[in-house]
Amino acid sequence: MNLKRLLLFVLLGVLVGITIFWVPGRFADSSPVGDDGDGPASASASRSGAPEAGTGSDPSAGSGSGPGRTSQPDPEPATEALPKAASPQTESGLPGLSQKPPTKPAALVAEPLPKPAVRKDALVAGYPTALAPPARTTVEISSVSPTKGVLQVALTASCRRPCDVLRHFRTGLAQHGFEEVTTMSVENGPAISLRRGEETVSVTVTDTGRRDVDFSLYSVLHTLA
């Protein structure tokens, strides 16, 4: 009996040893290298405290959209404010291209004014050149009468046809800045009245039906036009 018990205890001891030796999970750490995080390399990495790639422990590592990550919106492109274009100038003209004001016409008479005089059959001394009668004119009487800065001029004459007296004075005085204004003549005869500021020139034609055209002129001119 003692021998049987001894053999039974030995057999039980062998079975217990085998059972202990083959406990499940004993060889869990002996899996081949390269398994997903379960091998010795992963274990050693875990024990050493080194962060694993892609675990999010490094703020600058990985910007993907994996689980647990919040995708950040792309920053808006920077915009540069351009300076506003200068507003166009509102002046009436460009420098150097603006129209210049017309030159002030020169005076038809100047100081010293002629002395008062009257002359028959010719133009009196000091008679203004700008009031010269048309060609082929016969002067009957002419006169000048000065006052302070003013010269009064009178002329009575006749010219041989064809003779357009009104056109002659209208064209000539327009070059000196005179403009025609409405006038009333004696007996509704042809007449013109020209004005430049305070200066005036009046010409009246008397049509007698003869070969000659009679006309008269009266003018008031200033030394400062």
Rank of each mutant, 00 (worst) to 15 (best):
residue 78 A to W: 10
residue 165 V to I: 15
residue 138 T to A: 14
residue 36 D to P: 06
residue 181 V to F: 04
residue 207 D to A: 06
residue 43 A to F: 12
residue 93 G to C: 07
residue 16 V to P: 00
residue 164 D to W: 10
residue 213 V to S: 00
residue 101 P to R: 09
residue 50 A to N: 06
residue 108 L to T: 10
residue 172 G to D: 12
residue 40 P to H: 11
residue 157 A to S: 02
residue 99 Q to T: 15
residue 90 T to I: 11
residue 67 P to A: 12
residue 214 D to Y: 11
residue 124 V to Y: 06
residue 180 E to D: 05
residue 120 K to D: 11
residue 120 K to R: 00
residue 151 L to P: 02
residue 194 L to H: 04
residue 211 R to V: 14
residue 48 S to W: 09
residue 174 A to H: 11
residue 21 F to V: 13
residue 206 T to G: 09
residue 185 S to F: 01
residue 202 S to M: 01
residue 19 T to W: 08
residue 181 V to W: 08
residue 105 P to R: 08
residue 182 T to K: 14
residue 147 T to E: 12
residue 154 A to S: 15
residue 18 I to L: 14
residue 188 N to S: 09
residue 152 Q to C: 05
residue 183 T to Y: 02
residue 150 V to Y: 08
residue 78 A to L: 15
residue 173 L to S: 07
residue 209 G to N: 08
residue 141 I to F: 03
residue 147 T to Y: 07
residue 99 Q to N: 08
residue 181 V to D: 09
residue 153 V to K: 04
residue 13 G to Y: 03
residue 8 L to G: 10
residue 165 V to M: 01
residue 136 R to F: 02
residue 167 R to H: 08
residue 55 T to N: 14
residue 114 P to C: 03
residue 82 L to A: 12
residue 144 V to F: 10
residue 108 L to K: 11
residue 74 D to T: 12
residue 21 F to L: 13
residue 109 V to A: 06
residue 88 P to Y: 07
residue 201 V to H: 01
residue 66 G to H: 07
residue 112 P to W: 05
